[in-house]
């Protein structure tokens, strides 16, 4: 008799207990996951820009070289214009522009580090 009256509430209460424990466990996991996510976000604010879309990068590459040559040409022309060394300034600076254009392309393709020895991705 005593056995029976004790026996019936026990499984019931243990079920709700188990339910509660399980829910608490899930809550704990969820909270931990979120705080981890937050920390990861904080740490990841300076991710390398390797995730920049490839198409955008291809578009970027296309004009870097030309721009270098043009810049060299402009500087050379100005040089000649003010110092009267035509056409030597233009020739020299076009060559330098060529080099600068190649440098631009290599740099934006990520093959060489950025100016001043830093990578454009940062430290």
């Amino acid at each position: 008799m005593t056995q029976g009256s004790e026996g019936s509430p026990t499984p019931n209460s243990s079920r709700t207990d188990g339910d509660l424990a399980e829910r608490r466990e899930r809550l704990a996991q969820e909270l931990k996951r979120r705080s981890d996510l937050r920390e990861a976000e904080d740490a990841g604010t300076r991710k390398p820009r390797s995730d920049a879309s490839g198409l955008a990068r291809a578009l970027q590459l296309s004009s870097e070289f030309v721009a270098g040559v043009i810049a060299g040409g402009v500087v050379g022309w100005l040089f000649d214009h003010f110092l009267g060394t035509s056409p030597w300034g233009l020739i020299v600076f076009l060559l330098l522009g060529f080099a600068a254009g190649t440098l631009n392309v290599m740099r934006s393709a990520g093959l060489k580090s950025g100016p001043g020895g830093t990578t454009s991705e940062g430290p």
């Binding site: 970027q60 721009a67 270098g68 330098l96 080099a99």
Partner: peptide, 20 residues
């Protein structure tokens, strides 16, 4: 020489940015 090239590379930035 490298500095000169770097300067031209720097000057080419507005050009590449705008021309593109």
């Amino acid at each position: 020489l490298v500095v000169l090239i770097e300067v031209i590379s720097f000057l080419s930035r507005p050009i590449s940015l705008s021309v593109r």
